[in-house]
Nucleic acid binder design. Structure first.
Lengths: 162, 162
DNA sequence: AACAGTTATATAACGTGTTATGCAATTTTC
DNA sequence: GAAAATTGCATAACACGTTATATAACTGTT
């Protein structure tokens, strides 16, 4: 039995490690979603949630809200358009901007999800993570803030410069 | 300024969140690798490290070692073959198995990396994560173990069954 | 020894993120 | 007010993981 090298290497493979945990979580979440008979991808939910919380948003604002890059948003939004869950129209004052809003169908899905799937998912993930000793959410936030503040390449340069 | 919905939603979007942190870490790691003039992808390093630690491994053993699925391993191995960093040969006793080993060039790269890039990356990631309050590595391990033990869909069923 | 079942790898198609780049709409500059 | 710069979105190509399925090699049963 070969042991888990990524785990053994500790900080060296954190990228791969976070990524694979994320992928497993998304896959598992997808399974729960399907139990409810909802035809949607796990990755699309944050978009609907963002629109529900913040009202109509442009592509760029959505990118900020869900924390991915603009091309990723453009693609997912076009999928949601295809599914009829959102509407898109050019902003009246600036023809470049596209305002994305929940369609009636999208709003219904969100309302239903809020009281069924979402609590279920949250509870399952909390069961997985929350019962741990530490405040994992706070740590993730700290890591995200840290990354935003100074890229890795600019870290541990302390040893060299100071 | 729109706020970060994924963060606001807490446990609901953990999958997306882990994934995006992983992607950023990998991208940043890639940058460090390139500073050293090494022509390799961040995701390929765990493979080389595994082969260095555990000697020649089959595709299946590599999959266990780096914690991804077999098709992913097959692809990355074929890239490493292309780069001349590993060698592949059928196992003498079982023609189905492919034994992957570090080539001379691959071993040289590993030896060089061990004393240059890898410590640098570890230090940078430790600087990012390690100075936090909690033992993040232990938490990740706990999450991974938890996922392996019971899929999300089987969690929080406590409320329903007990 | 042949057939059926199992195992190891390969291949194909897809999901979800990324950069890089193009184009149209707006804003700035002279 | 026209040229240049900037901004916002779209598109293309890629990275790296997944599942589903095919194929070849081995094992076990009769």
């Amino acid at each position: 039995m070969v042991d888990d090298v990524v785990r053994t290497l500790g900080f060296l493979c954190m990228g791969s490690r976070f990524r694979r945990i994320g992928e497993r979580l998304q896959a598992d979440t997808q399974q729960i979603i399907e139990e409810y008979g909802i035809a949607i991808q796990a990755a699309q939910y944050p978009f609907l949630a963002a629109l529900d919380r913040a009202g109509p948003l442009t592509i760029g604002e959505l990118a900020q809200a869900v924390g991915i890059t603009q091309p990723g948003v453009t693609r997912t939004v076009s999928q949601l358009l295809e599914l009829g869950l959102v509407d898109m129209q050019a902003a009246p004052d600036d023809q470049r901007r596209r305002l994305i809003s929940l369609s009636r169908k999208g709003q219904e899905l969100v309302d239903y999800s809020k009281q069924s799937v979402w609590p279920r998912i949250s509870a399952a993930v909390a069961d997985l993570c929350g019962d741990l000793n530490g405040p994992i959410l706070a740590q993730l936030a700290a890591i995200e803030d840290g990354l935003a503040e100074a890229a890795l390449a600019r870290r541990a340069a302390n040893e060299e410069t100071t």
